[in-house]
Amino acid sequence: MEPLAIAEKIKNQFPAEVIEVVESRGQVGVIVAREQIGAMCRWLKDEPELRMDHLLALCGVDYVAKNGTYEVVYNLCSIPLRHMIRLRARVPADDCRIDSVTCLWRGADWLERECFDLLGIVFDGHPDLRRILLPEGWEGYPLRKTYPLRLPAEQEWQGYVQLKELSRELSRFDFYSDMLSNQAKAGANEAKK
């Protein structure tokens, strides 16, 4: 099915939810409100004409500077019918929550965890929402546009601070001369024997 026709179908089924339909490079993205995202995905998956059974990718995008929202982007594709559509669910920045779709796709589990980890979007109904790529105890969400590229020294993550101390300690150690002196010692020992 043509992507625009799919978008039209979604619009007919959920008239209150669809905010905008955007076309870009032959692909169609449907910007939707976050409230009915679970029902919408279930419908997309079960509707015999669409059968969007494969969740290609799930990620978050920070549009806070533009319109005060985050977007969770669902790229869906149908393996038997060979078409795809993109859902972009808007999540307001002051209330970063959206329903999880792990009950529909088990594979969404880690993708949602990653999205939570890097953008701080909370997925309601997710079985095990923890940090995944970043170490536990990390502060802040790096993929937000407000997150600086270089943190001030006092806000640096403790693990990194320790690592830097260790490397400073080890850099005083001169491997080459140590090796030479070891060789000299070994030579002296052999000479003794």
Binding site: A57, V73, N75
Partner: peptide, 29 residues
């Protein structure tokens, strides 16, 4: 400006890239 999702069949499976461009010279996301 715009966004696009393109994937290829890598040796491990589907390797996809989702780009968002805001018109600057760097990917927005």
């Amino acid at each position: 400006e715009g966004d696009v999702y393109v994937s290829i069949e890598g040796s491990k499976g589907e390797l996809g890239f989702y780009f968002v461009s805001d018109g600057g010279g760097r990917p927005y996301r």
